[in-house]
Every structure is written in structure tokens, then in C-alpha cells.
Design a protein around this nucleic acid. Structure first.
Lengths: 221, 221
DNA sequence: GACCGTTAGGTGACAATATCACTGAAGTGG
DNA sequence: CCACTTCAGTGATATTGTCACCTAACGGTC
């Protein structure tokens, strides 16, 4: 028996009968990983299903030459369905999931997962919702990359990264990897934002001094 | 009882017990649509699951100003899982599925679908495989758009569109919509291909006269 | 503090792609 | 033949990406 009842944490498990939940607590493992750990990747295809109990996982795609783009983030309470896709993929792909903070994950063996999907409607719709959510996320990424302007996308991402705060601790390179572009491009646009008084920069740090203006830019599409 | 046994056509249904298949034939509808019909779209979210018996569906995304990009194609024998994602989506999205030829689809009510997923492992893995396939497809699109060169992508797409044939009946605008770029860009690259003797153009028609060379360009990544 | 290596960021030149505004050429239906 | 529409070509310009190189800031060490 585990110390914590993680079944409380997930939409797909918290409404299940006590008996089923106890069985789950029995067969699932809880794992702790440090920030920076690769949860999955091309060379590291897990054979179990992963539920994120605590922390954030950043899922990104890497190009041949060193450029990256962030596809989406998995937050606490969500499952990481791309791993299941990876299992089934015969084609090459190059997405990877990196722990963006220290994380706690619940690892559910494939067999238990299968049984749960079969027997529990609530869990089933949880899983389908997770898949759908990711599909929609990817649609958004495609739209942004194919049709979006870089200043609009940057303003938007700055606001997301800052969250409720005014400060972001990130290098230009890291932000470029968020948006799938080159560092120089980010440097120039940030420089422009600074000249217009929207942000203040120091090494490895950006302060959003005019969030409303950034929001106006982000929403100009 | 339907005239044709469509359950023979799909990986997820052809291995099912006769009894289950007969039940399916009973509850599902077969619909015929003309080329150009919108199978689903932002204004047209179906509440049933769709299986493509015959033909091809082109799934594309539309930007604010008239640009498009093709996300993937649904071929005969596959299911169209994006519709299920659309049902669950609370956010706005702008993907649509258009019949690229006359099509026959099997429309399965959501309830029957649910029951089938619950009761039949073979059907369940068929559905999960379909989701995974689309996720992987979208990863590829993101990769291409974010990191790919336009001449490489065009060469690749020309070969796909031609299939076993040497000729393609498509305007520059249509090809631009495949790749999510502007007509002028396609015109210029095609012009270049023609000067290099790789293709011959006439109005609304492209002949691939040197496929090996195109393949070499397509694979130069 | 002085020294040194590393990383973050700035910048100019140029290439690739996108946008805009226009042109003419090729089909279509009267 | 003549309008009319659709398709394709092209120059000018804007945006974004690439390359080469530089300087500034930081972190250790002595």
C-alpha cells in the first residue's frame, strides 16, 4: 500500500469505487524524478502509462540541427498520452518529455491500464479527453508556427511563462526553443519590446513592465 | 440489415465475433457523400463516430486570412478520430475534414462506440492506434513547418500527390494550401524545378519528369 | 583583486520566405 | 469573336532565419 492516495488526484480515478482504487494503489508505482529528467524520448520509450501527480513535464520536439519547439506542457493531474503513441509508432519521431520541475509520477502497468479502460467508463472518458486535449494543443501549435507572427507569439508566450508574476527567469535561447525559432530572432524582438518600454531585461531575466500592452500585442491576430 | 458487410473493412471490427458484427451492422448507418462535402468543421461538429469505408478525407486547418495547411489524410479503412476531439473541445479550433473524392462513411452512434470500446479489446486497440497515428502525423507537420525548407517539402509533396503516376492535376494555389504557404512561393519554386528539368508545367497540371531527382531533394534533410 | 574560461546577449550581412500589387495568359460561356 | 474568370509570373518590400563574429556578465581560481 502506498503512503498517499494518488487516485484522489485524477479526474479519471477519483470517482471510481473504493475497491478499484485500492487495487490501483496496489499495482501502480510512484516514482520521483529530479528536474531535467527525461520522462520519455526517442531512445527511451516507456512501456507503462504515466500520470503526473506533481510538477510539470515539458514536451518538445527537436530538429536535426539544434532547434527545439515546445509542443505543450503536462500539468499535475494529467496523463501523458504521447507515451502511448510512442509505443505504437513504427515511424521515427523526435518528441521528448522533460521534467520541468521535480516531479512525482504514477506509473501504471499497461495491463492494468487496459483493464481500467475496459471496465470503468469514467476512466475511459478521462483517457479520451487527454488524447483530445493533446490533439487540440498540437492544432494550435501548427496554427501558430504556420500562420503566426513572431512578435505576437513571443508576447503571448512571455505572458504564459510569467503566469501571475512579473518576472521570468529564462535565457533568450530557452525562449527561442519554446517557439521553435533562433536565439537571434528572440534577441531582436525582445530588444524591440524593451525599447518600447514593455519589458526590462537583465542577464537571464525578463521583467514584464507593461503586461496590458503585451496582451494587446498577443491578441492582435 | 445493410447490403454490405463493412465490418470486414476495418482492422478493429473484422476480428470481432459474428454476433457483435451483426449488431453493429444493425445500428450503424452508411452514408454517401460527394466530393467536396464537409465531413466535419468548426460549425459542424458531429455527435457520432465516423469510419471511412471508401475514398479519402483531407483534414486541413484554416488561418484567419485565407491560408490553409493540410494536416493529414484519412484513407479508406481508417477512422476519423479528430471528430471525437472536436466533441470534447471547449476551445476554438479551426480544422475541417473535406471529402477529397466521393466517399462512403460508416456512422456509428456514440453509445455503440462506447460499448464497443469497453467490450472489445481488438476494437479498443484499433481506436487507440488511430489516435496515436494522428498524433504522430501532427508531430510531423509541426516538424516540417517549423524546421523544414520549402523546396524539400514541395518535392516531397509532389511525389506523394503523384503517387504511382507522373502527373498531378492541381493548381499552384492548391499545392500552397497543402503546405501552408502562399501561392507565389510555390510558383517560384516550381518555376525553379522546371528550369532544372525536374518537372513540366501546364495550366493546372504538373508532370514529374525526373522523380529520382525530386526524391533526392525531398530526402535532403 | 587579477586572470581565465564559459555563457548570455548584440549586431551586421545575407539568405529564405511571405506579402503586396500588379501583369498577362489560358480557359469558359455567351 | 468578346467579356469574364481563373491561373500563373514577377518586381518590390517586409519578415524571419542563418552565419559569423563580437562584447558583456558571471563564476571559479589563485
Amino acid at each position: 500500500m502506498n503512503a498517499i492516495d494518488w487516485t484522489e488526484r485524477f479526474k479519471g480515478t477519483k470517482t471510481l469505487p473504493r475497491l478499484v482504487r485500492d487495487r490501483l494503489l496496489d499495482v501502480a508505482l510512484i516514482r520521483n524524478h529530479k528536474k531535467g529528467y527525461q520522462v520519455f524520448g526517442p531512445e527511451n520509450v516507456p512501456d507503462s502509462l504515466i500520470f503526473l501527480y506533481d510538477g510539470t513535464i515539458r514536451v518538445s520536439q527537436t530538429s536535426g540541427n539544434g532547434r527545439d519547439i515546445v509542443l505543450y506542457r503536462v500539468d499535475a493531474g494529467e496523463s501523458c498520452v504521447l507515451t502511448t503513441a510512442c509505443m505504437l509508432a513504427e515511424e521515427a519521431y523526435n518528441a521528448e518529455g522533460i521534467a520541468e520541475s521535480d516531479i512525482n509520477v504514477v506509473v501504471l502497468p499497461k495491463m492494468s491500464f487496459d483493464r481500467l479502460v475496459a471496465e470503468e467508463p469514467a476512466f475511459r472518458s478521462f483517457v479520451f479527453a487527454a488524447y483530445s486535449r493533446r490533439l487540440i494543443d498540437l492544432l494550435r501549435v501548427v496554427d501558430d508556427v504556420a500562420f503566426g507572427r513572431i512578435d505576437v507569439r513571443l508576447a503571448e508566450r512571455l505572458l504564459v511563462l510569467a503566469g501571475g508574476d512579473r518576472e521570468i527567469a529564462a535565457t533568450h535561447q530557452e525562449i527561442a526553443s519554446e517557439l521553435g525559432t533562433a536565439r537571434e530572432v528572440i534577441s531582436r524582438v525582445l530588444h524591440d519590446f524593451q525599447k518600447r518600454g514593455l519589458i526590462v531585461q537583465s542577464r537571464g531575466r525578463i521583467t514584464l513592465s507593461d503586461k496590458p500592452a503585451l496582451r494587446a500585442i498577443a491578441e492582435s491576430d
